[in-house]
Structures are given as C-alpha cells and as structure tokens.
C-alpha cells in the first residue's frame, strides 16, 4: 500500500497536465526506510516524448547524490501516460530498477492539460512482475 499526502498527489497530476502531451516524470523522496513520500522532485523528461520518458543523466546523478546526502530513498517514482491507461507498459517494466519504490502512473488521456477527473494508480515492479497496490491518502 502507498500512503501519501493529497498535496503530493495533486502535484503529480499538475505536473502531468503541464507536460501533456509529453510524458512527465519525477520522484518523491522520503526518509530512508520510512516508506513515506515527502519531498516532491519533478524531473525533466530528457526524451520530451509522448511515448517515452527518461531522466536526464546529469540530473539523475545530482538527484541520487542529494538523496544520499539527505539519507533519503526514492519512495515514489512517477510518470504519466498521455494516450493510454495508468498501467505500466512493457518498457516501464523492463527498465524498472527500484524494487522498493512505488511506481505511480498518472494518465492524462481523458482531459489532457485541462482540469477534470484523472486516473492515478500505484504499482510495485519487482523482477518484471507488476503488482497494483492500494493508495491511501493521509
């Protein structure tokens, strides 16, 4: 189960809408071992693509150094799908490399950049196996 504050959910949705029709991506870091997402870190999608995302390699190095220095984990790794459902794609599964992270997918396929209902789901991806999990706001 992912337990997360509403403002962090809202921040992921806002980022996904702002970058639509390209995919948006980022991390929510939290104290190591806590499983609590706390620090919202939107990342640039270096691929700038509606069908792919990738953190810029230098941004990635800076991010991991910051998290190491602050004793944080990437508790949530999020990205958007802009034309398909909020479910991990085959490429999402093959590149998933944080077995302890919650992979959050936001889909903007219904409303695009506009306000309205959104789809946001959370998954574990471990050794190629996807398991959806409940999201609790709190």
């Amino acid at each position: 189960m992912l337990t997360i504050r509403q403002d962090l959910v809202d921040a992921m949705v806002a980022h996904a809408r702002a970058d639509h029709p390209d995919e948006a991506c980022g991390v929510i870091a939290g104290p190591a071992g806590s499983d609590r997402p706390e620090r919202f870190v939107p990342m640039v999608n270096a691929a700038r693509s509606p069908t792919f995302y990738e953190f810029d390699s230098m941004d990635l190095l800076r991010l991991y150094r910051e998290m190491d220095a602050a004793d944080e984990d990437p508790v949530v790794v999020y990205h958007s799908h802009t034309a398909t459902e909020a479910y991990p794609s085959r490429t999402d599964i093959s590149y998933a490399s944080e077995p302890a992270a919650h992979y959050v997918l936001v889909s903007t396929r219904e409303t695009g950049a506009e306000d309205g209902p959104y789809e946001l789901r959370s998954f574990r991806i471990v050794d190629g196996v996807v398991t959806e999990e409940e999201i609790r706001i709190g």
């Binding site: 995302y53 990738e54 991991y64 790794v77 590149y95």
Partner: peptide, 10 residues
C-alpha cells in the same frame, strides 16, 4: 565511479 540505472520507461 557511480553506477545508476536509468530512470526511464514508456
């Protein structure tokens, strides 16, 4: 030397 898997997907 730092090794980091890309954070990427589709």
């Amino acid at each position: 030397v730092t090794v980091l898997p890309a954070v990427a997907g589709g």
